[in-house]
Amino acid sequence: MPFVLPREPGLPPVTWTAYAFTTLGVLPLVWRRRRPVLVLVVILLVGGVYRVAVDGPGQPLPYAGLMAFYTVALRCPGRVRAWVGAGSVAVVAASVGLSTGTARELSFTLFCAGAAYALGRLQYTRQAYTAAVEDRAAQLERTHRIEAEQAAARERARIAREMHDVLSHAVSIMIVQAEAGPVAVRRAPERAEAAFEAISETGREAMAQLRTMLGVLRETDGPEPREPQPGVAALPALLERVRRGGPEVVYEESGGAAGLPAAVDTAVYRIVQEALTNVLKHARARRVSVRLHHGDGELSVTVTDDGRGPGGGRGGAGGAAGWASGGGGGAAGGGHGLIGIGERAAAHGGTAWCGPRRDGPGFEVRAVLVTSRPEVGS
């Protein structure tokens, strides 16, 4: 204000030198974020020269020095802050000694410098906290995006398995029945009629299951009727359709048949369905055996046939056998069907195996699914 308001009579007028030094004491603040220590040193030197060599108006308040000291506390590492703090205390003590030399002025100046330093450290903590929160939010967003992409991939794989199981099984039965139809028309007309009925029934069931899956995917304004996914209870009807295709099918179920979880119930049906589809497509078997055994907390599914086996061109087996766990394929070079059997078993904490029978010609698919989880602490 002494540069703006008229000065009292008897005081020397303001000079351009005083204007210049006052400006130099503020202008370095433009670079305070890039060179905080250098800016503080320049401001203190300009202020000292102003006080000693220039007959300026009054005693300017050290706002520029406090801002520079605040920036040092905000941006400099601990060792630099320690050296700057010690030097600032020495400069303040010398300045007070040249001025009034009173403890009152010394304590007031040190208090102002300490307050500026404390504000700088508080601002540093606030900025670090804000940066950490923003980084965490960005990481959570990336994590959520990755989880959403993984969930979409898992859902696509599940839908692909369901579509493969439904269509492959239905088309295989229809092809087998259609190929047997002309022969049956010439030799046994009554069997030809049964073959055409099996084709029609298989097609209708496949369409019904496809409508169910597509209805889940389709977004509609109102609820659509839903049918439960087939399970163990639907196996007799499935086996009956396969019998109409030619091979004799034997079904056995042993052990304490308790209620199965819905997901396991459907997985068992799909595993048997895929195994029978492979039999119809590749094995040329005359007899197929389907066995279910309910054990202690697990369910084993075994499908065997007396067909050509992997050495006879069995599709999907590739002439080898292997374990399928954790979503891996059932055999070296296995097709999607055997891979799907392994994935279904692994999804329920189990394993699957496929390969040539050990007790004779043919092929065997065996899967073990966990039906109950052990209790914590047991």
Rank of each mutant, 00 (worst) to 15 (best):
A192I: 05
F108E: 11
A128I: 07
R156Y: 07
V176A: 14
M163N: 09
E190L: 13
A180H: 11
V92R: 01
V185K: 00
A86M: 10
A131T: 04
H169C: 15
V133H: 08
S172I: 02
R142T: 00
A115H: 05
A103V: 15
D135P: 04
V183R: 13
Q150F: 11
H144E: 14
A132F: 10
L140F: 14
T109N: 09
Y124G: 01
Q123I: 01
R156N: 09
L119C: 07
L98P: 01
D165N: 14
P182D: 04
A113P: 06
R104K: 09
V92L: 07
V183H: 12
R186I: 05
R126C: 06
A93D: 02
A94G: 14
S168D: 11
L122T: 08
A151R: 11
L140M: 05
A153T: 10
G97N: 07
A93G: 07
A128H: 12
T130V: 15
Q139W: 09
A93H: 02
R126T: 07
E190H: 15
T143C: 08
V166A: 09
A132I: 00
A157E: 06
V185I: 15
A132E: 04
I175G: 01
L140C: 03
G120S: 00
E105K: 01
S99I: 11
V89T: 04
A94V: 11
P182N: 04
A113H: 05
E147Q: 15
S107N: 06
Y129T: 13
G101I: 03
E134F: 09
H144A: 14
R156D: 12
A131F: 07
A131G: 07
A180F: 09
R191D: 12
E162F: 13
E179G: 03
A137I: 10
V96L: 01
R104I: 13
Q139M: 10
R156E: 09
S88F: 08
T100V: 06
F111D: 07
A113K: 00
L122K: 02
S88E: 00
A86H: 02
R121E: 07
H144N: 13
T100W: 00
M163H: 10
S99G: 10
V133F: 08
V133G: 01
Q150Y: 08
R104N: 06
A94T: 08
L98K: 10
G181C: 15
R126A: 13
I146R: 12
L106C: 02
A90G: 09
Q150T: 15
I175A: 11
A192L: 09
A113N: 02
H164N: 14
L122C: 11
A132M: 06
L106K: 00
R154F: 07
I146S: 10
V166Y: 04
A157H: 04
R156Q: 13
T130A: 15
L98G: 05
T102D: 02
C112D: 10
R186Y: 05
R187I: 06
V92E: 04
A180D: 10
E155T: 12
S172P: 03
Y124I: 00
R154I: 03
I175P: 00
T100H: 06
A184M: 11
S172W: 07
S99V: 12
A151T: 14
V96I: 11
I173E: 11
A90W: 02
G101Q: 02
A103S: 05
R121T: 14
A128D: 08
G114V: 10
I159D: 10
C112N: 14
A178M: 13
Q123N: 06
R154K: 09
G114K: 00
F111C: 13
Q177L: 15
A90H: 02
V96R: 01
S95H: 12
A131R: 15
